[in-house]
């Protein structure tokens, strides 16, 4: 198990360095003089010179990368030009919204996805399976933000259950937080619920017919008991994989949904940064999110080894 874990760590580490190199390299893709672009229109020669020195653009590439990378490692993420504030300050201020959305969304996706998938897979071709299959297909095909708009029309404008915009911090009022997060988190998780339930349905309908499940039922063990114990364990690896994959998808969706619900999150910051060509913010955002995704995949890999000992020796 230890060697398996070390092995996985050894593949994750170069990946992180590579992502860091890539995000750093973004600056070289800028057309023309990056310092001029970043300093913005109408910047004076002195300002451009400052930007150039700040970014270290006058230094050799490897030196630039090393300085930048060292800074990143100790949490010095540089300065945003459009906000005129340190990137780490900007991010810590906004991370709560995005984390809330992704965590609640992941919860929705895993619970709703697993339950729907299990019941559909137990009785393939049944009425429940048919209805959910249709909904899953629609959920995978519809644009996330359109689903969110439909949610707003139905639940905010027509029914008046939720506010269409805004975010309440969990430290301010846990109840208010929940109320403000439910609708956007639901919208964020639709595609993921569809994806998870589709996968769980496939594994569940496959496992259902295996001998030990039939034997269990013949012995009179209650259906739900066999379900949870055996199917849960046997389709566990597949389910964890697919749920792990949702993290990347949920982050992408959260960025869009935050804008739509006017929530002061990471996504909003990022979109403004994109519109203002605020490179330091973009670099750190991409690096941060990619690191989260890589570490999630690492955790998924390691949990395989814990669930299914066979994989370790393989």
């Amino acid at each position: 198990m230890l060697r398996y874990t070390i092995d996985k760590l050894l593949t994750a580490f170069p990946l992180l360095v590579l992502v860091a190199l890539g995000t750093f390299g973004l600056v070289f893709l800028m057309p023309g003089d990056a310092a001029v672009t970043i300093a913005g229109e109408g910047a004076s020669a002195a300002q451009i010179q400052t930007v150039r020195q700040d970014l270290g653009l006058d230094q050799p590439v490897l030196v630039q990368f090393w300085d930048w990378f060292q800074g990143v490692l100790v949490g010095d993420f540089g300065t945003s030009y459009s906000y005129n504030a340190s990137v780490s300050y900007l991010i810590t201020q906004r991370i709560e919204v995005t984390v809330s959305l992704v965590v609640v969304g992941l919860l929705f996706a895993s619970v709703a996805g697993t339950v729907i998938g299990l019941f559909a897979g137990l009785n393939p071709g049944g009425p429940f399976d048919r209805v959910t299959t249709l909904l899953v297909t629609l959920g995978l095909a519809a644009p996330t933000y359109w689903i969110a708009i439909v949610f707003i029309i139905v639940f905010s404008l027509q029914l008046g259950w939720f506010d269409a915009t805004g975010y309440v911090s969990i430290t301010e009022s846990p109840g208010g937080w929940l109320h403000s997060i439910l609708l956007p988190a639901a919208a964020v998780s639709v595609t993921s619920i569809a994806d998870v339930s589709r996968q769980v349905r496939a594994t569940a309908s496959g496992v259902k017919d295996l001998d030990f499940v039939r034997t269990g039922r013949a012995l009179g063990i209650p259906r739900s008991g066999i379900l949870v114990r055996h199917i849960g364990r046997n389709s566990g690896v597949a389910t964890i994989t697919i749920i792990g994959l949702q993290v990347e998808r949920l982050i992408g969706a959260a960025v869009v949904i935050e804008m739509l619900f006017a929530m002061p999150g990471f996504g909003t910051l990022l979109v403004n940064a994109v519109l203002n060509q605020d490179l330091p913010v973009i670099q750190i955002s991409v690096l941060l999110i990619a690191s989260v995704v890589i570490l999630t995949n690492l955790a998924v890999d390691i949990s395989y080894g814990l669930i299914n000992p066979k994989i370790r020796t393989g």
Binding site: L15, L18, V19, G22, V255, V293, I294
Partner: peptide, 24 residues
């Protein structure tokens, strides 16, 4: 393969956004 893995770790929309940010 490593480069592909690295690109895979970034949500699609973010990567597209980053490229738009740089190229306009």
């Amino acid at each position: 393969t490593r480069v592909a893995d690295a690109l895979f770790a970034v949500p699609g929309i973010l990567l597209a956004m980053a490229i738009v940010a740089i190229r306009g």
